[in-house]
């Protein structure tokens, strides 16, 4: 078991135990995760690294409730998500998880504003409440003047910042980022990493990030390596 942030204490947000995930491919079983355990504290900033195909995306999908493990349990903020049904899990995602993807995954036919507003449509907020939240989020990512732009009218870095605004707008419990800088040039990547750092430092967000980029991983407080289906601690930076 890897403790992402020192000894277990009351601040523990994510508790994963003995996660197994295997895929059936052809006649063969492909064991991607094997007996993986992990504790993550609230306010943590974690980077997962590892070779391609090592199961980083798979792990993130499990922690975010997009997929279910073959065996093992995950609890987030006391909710046992591995015991939830499909629709329960969907509602849980809406409430607790913000996703940032490598390819941004903005909805092309919606403006930046409408993209960021999407998660709020699942809350009880009214129209003006939603507007307030969207404006705040877009301001936080430095794009208040791009509200009415469509994704194709934005640069890759700007698209990813809109995607981050969308991920945080409903104030989720944790942020899951799968190679958030994987498709960006260095300058845009730095901007995005700076933004994620600020979300942790100034806004107390908890971020789990997959990355291939050591420069990006440097920003995280902890870097974990996925090897042979389980995690090994690689380094820790003072908070």
């Amino acid at each position: 078991m890897v403790n992402a942030n020192g000894a277990p204490n009351g601040k523990c947000l994510i508790r994963a135990r003995n996660l197994d995930k295997s895929y059936q491919r052809g006649g063969e079983q492909l064991h991607v995760l094997q007996g993986l355990s992990l504790d993550v504290d609230r306010g943590g900033f974690l980077a997962f690294m590892g070779p391609s195909g090592s199961g980083k995306t798979t792990l993130l999908n499990l922690l975010g409730g997009l997929d279910v493990p073959t065996s093992g349990s995950i609890s987030v903020a006391g909710d046992e998500i591995t015991a939830m049904g499909r629709s329960q899990l969907t509602a849980w995602r809406a409430r607790h998880v913000g996703f940032v993807f490598q390819m941004y995954n903005l909805i092309p036919v919606l403006t930046a504003y409408q993209n960021v507003e999407l998660p709020l449509l699942l809350t009880s907020l009214g129209r003006s409440g939603r507007r307030e939240h969207v404006e705040t989020a877009l301001e936080l990512v430095g794009l208040p003047d791009r509200m009415n732009h469509y994704p194709r009218q934005l640069s890759g870095g700007q698209e990813q910042r809109v995607a981050i605004a969308r991920a945080i707008v409903a104030d989720p419990t944790l942020l899951l980022c799968d190679e958030p800088t994987g498709d960006l040039d260095r300058r845009s990547a730095d901007e995005v990493m700076q933004l994620l750092g600020r979300l942790v430092d100034e806004h107390g967000k908890t971020i789990l990030m997959v990355t291939h980029d050591p420069r990006a991983a440097e920003r995280a407080r902890t870097t974990l390596h996925l090897e042979k289906g389980t995690l090994v601690e690689a380094g820790r930076r003072a908070a």
Partner: peptide
């Protein structure tokens, strides 16, 4: 899939 990830139901 993105919409589903954001929490929109089936």
């Amino acid at each position: 899939a993105t919409l589903r990830a954001l929490g929109f139901g089936a």
